[in-house]
Design a protein around this nucleic acid. Structure first.
Lengths: 114, 114
DNA sequence: TTGATATTCAACCAATTGGTTGAAGAAAGG
DNA sequence: CCTTTCTTCAACCAATTGGTTGAATATCAA
C-alpha cells in the first residue's frame, strides 16, 4: 500500500494546533514567530508542528534572510478530500439503494393488502 | 478549542491499516477475526486499530454471542469533509479572485495597446 | 565588531501509537 | 463436563508525537 502521502496529510490535520496554524495562514504568509505568538507553547513546539505540516506539503516555506515565510498549500487537501468523498459517496449510494428497497417493500405490502 | 472529535476522526484516517479496515467494511458487516485475517499482524493489533476507529465513531459494534460484528458508520466523515471543503473553497475562491485580477489586468493592457 | 533577532538543532521527557505475547472471559459444540 | 472459538485485557517494547530547555547558526543593525 503506497499511501504515505495520505497518511502524512491526515496525520497533519489530526491536531488542533496544526489546523489553527493553517487557519492562520488563510490570512496570508506569516513568519514562524508570528505564527507561534498566539499559542501557549514555545516557539520550538510550533516549529515542530510546522515541520509536520511541511512533511504533508500543506505548508510552503520561503526564506528571506533570517526570516522564514510560511504559506498554505491547498493541493494536498485534494487527496484527502478524494478519499473521503469517494467513501462517502459509496455509502450515500448504498443508503439510496436501501431506501429504494424499503420503499418497494412498502409498495409490495400495500399491493398485497389491497 | 473543542475539536476533539475531529482530532479523533483525522487521526483514525491517518493510518493505512485503518483505512483498509474501513474499505473492507464497505463489503458489509464483518467479525473482528474476519477483518484481521488479511493483515500481516496479530489479531490483537487489529483489535486495537478497531478501537481507534470506534473512538472516532467510524465503526459500530454489534455483539452476537461471542462474535462482534463491526460495521462502517459514515457520519463522522461529514465533519472531516466539512473542514476540508471549507478550507479548500476558501482557497479556490481566492484563486478565482486572483485569476480575475490577472484577467482584468490583461484586459487593461489590451485596452491601452489599442 | 558587537549585539539583538529569527530560526533550527540537540537532548531530554511524557503521552500516544503500533506492535508483540500471554493470559482471561464468554459463548458454542462436543 | 471439557475443549475450542472469539474476543478483550494486561504487560511489555519500539517508534512517533508533543512538549520542554539550552545551544548553535545565520542574518540584521548599530
Amino acid at each position: 500500500m503506497r499511501s504515505e502521502r495520505l497518511d502524512h496529510i491526515m496525520t497533519a490535520l489530526g491536531d488542533p494546533t496544526r489546523r489553527a496554524i493553517l487557519a492562520r495562514l488563510n490570512a496570508g504568509e506569516a513568519r514562524v514567530t508570528d505564527i507561534a505568538a498566539p499559542f501557549d507553547m514555545s516557539l520550538n513546539a510550533v516549529s515542530k508542528h510546522i515541520r509536520l505540516l511541511e512533511r504533508a506539503d500543506l505548508v510552503k516555506r520561503r526564506k528571506a534572510g533570517r526570516e522564514h515565510y510560511l504559506s498554505f498549500n491547498a493541493a494536498p487537501l485534494d487527496e484527502a478530500s478524494e478519499w473521503i468523498e469517494q467513501t462517502r459517496m459509496f455509502w450515500a449510494r448504498r443508503l439510496d439503494t436501501l431506501e429504494c428497497v424499503l420503499k418497494s417493500d412498502l409498495q409490495e405490502k400495500k399491493g398485497r393488502k389491497k
